[in-house]
């Protein structure tokens, strides 16, 4: 039986609930979980002030409620287990997580999986800005793990991303892969402007054509063998990718030439 956290009162200001992780909840009774702290503005409050906790942790935490979009830092720094959210979530979901899985049935606000190093975040709806990104002033964003978004994502997906996988079934905003260092970003829908600006290495793969910065140079049109591995993997996670896009061909652009010029943007050109 999963541990159920059912929201009983909407917070006046967003809650910072970085104690809602399997790492902190393992071994706790429901009453013990209710005593764990959350930040409500500048006040230290208890989880029990906002959630009724029932059930027993069996590796899964289930959050339910109509105002979970006002709860931040769910799953921050988690290393194991599963968090399943029935509804939307607030900012900083899975910040710095290193393992386990977070499954969101609704939408996520900005900063999904910032600086995460492992595990998987899956969002059935849309995500805000800065998915998988570095915090402002930091050298590196996501360094491992996977973020799967079944809807759209807004700006700066994978900012300074160093490794890992981000897949977006819908559209991606501006500056996708900005300052990217390595890793892979797949976008099935439309790309915004200035994709890959400042990227050193890594791959942005678009299943549609897109307009790119002039600092990206066309190399060739070919069928990248490694893409099939990813497409098979993503299909297994529930993303729909038609056979034509699996087979290619793709136009390869190298850039950003204002940086190392070792990154690539692949645009489907069927």
């Amino acid at each position: 039986m999963p541990l159920l956290l059912k929201q009983i009162a909407p917070p006046e200001v967003p809650l910072e609930a970085d104690n809602i992780t399997p790492d902190r909840i393992t071994g706790q009774t429901p009453a013990g979980v209710e005593k764990l702290t959350v930040m409500h503005g500048n006040e230290t409050r208890r989880i029990g002030d906002f959630f009724r906790v029932t059930g027993q942790y069996d590796g899964v935490i289930n959050l339910q409620g109509d105002h979970l979009g006002r709860v931040k830092f769910i799953g921050a720094r988690m290393s194991r287990g599963v968090i399943r959210v029935d509804g939307d979530v607030g900012e900083h979901l899975g910040a710095g997580m290193s393992g386990g899985a977070i499954l969101i049935s609704g939408n996520a606000a900005d900063w999904v999986g910032p600086e995460m190093s492992g595990g998987r975040i899956e969002i059935r709806g849309n995500a805000g800005h800065m998915t998988g990104s570095a915090y402002r002033g930091a050298d590196m964003g996501m360094t491992g793990g996977e973020i799967i978004i079944h809807g759209n994502a807004r700006n700066e997906v994978g900012n300074a991303m160093r490794n890992g996988l981000i897949a977006i079934a819908g559209n991606s905003g501006d500056f996708t892969g900005v300052n990217m260092l390595a890793g892979s970003i797949f976008v099935s829908g439309e790309l915004g402007i200035r994709t890959g600006a400042g990227m050193k290495r890594g791959s942005v793969i678009s299943l549609k054509d897109a307009e790119l910065l002039p600092t990206f140079d066309y190399s060739c049109t070919y069928q990248p063998g490694y893409l099939t591995l990813y497409f098979r993997y993503l299909t297994g996670l529930g993303l729909e990718i038609d056979d034509e896009r699996v087979r290619g061909p793709y136009k390869r652009y190298c850039g950003d030439s204002v940086e190392m010029n070792r990154g690539e943007i692949l645009l489907y050109s069927g």
């Binding site: 290495r201 791959s203 070919y222 990248p224 063998g225 490694y226 591995l229 990813y230 993997y233 070792r262």
Partner: peptide, 24 residues
């Protein structure tokens, strides 16, 4: 120096540029 790698599901694959595209 133009090789690159991808890590997927815990396995790393190297992409080596060759004359018909890439050897994975």
């Amino acid at each position: 120096g133009f090789q690159g790698s991808k890590k997927l599901a815990g396995r790393r694959y190297w992409r080596i540029p060759v004359m018909d595209g890439e050897f994975v």
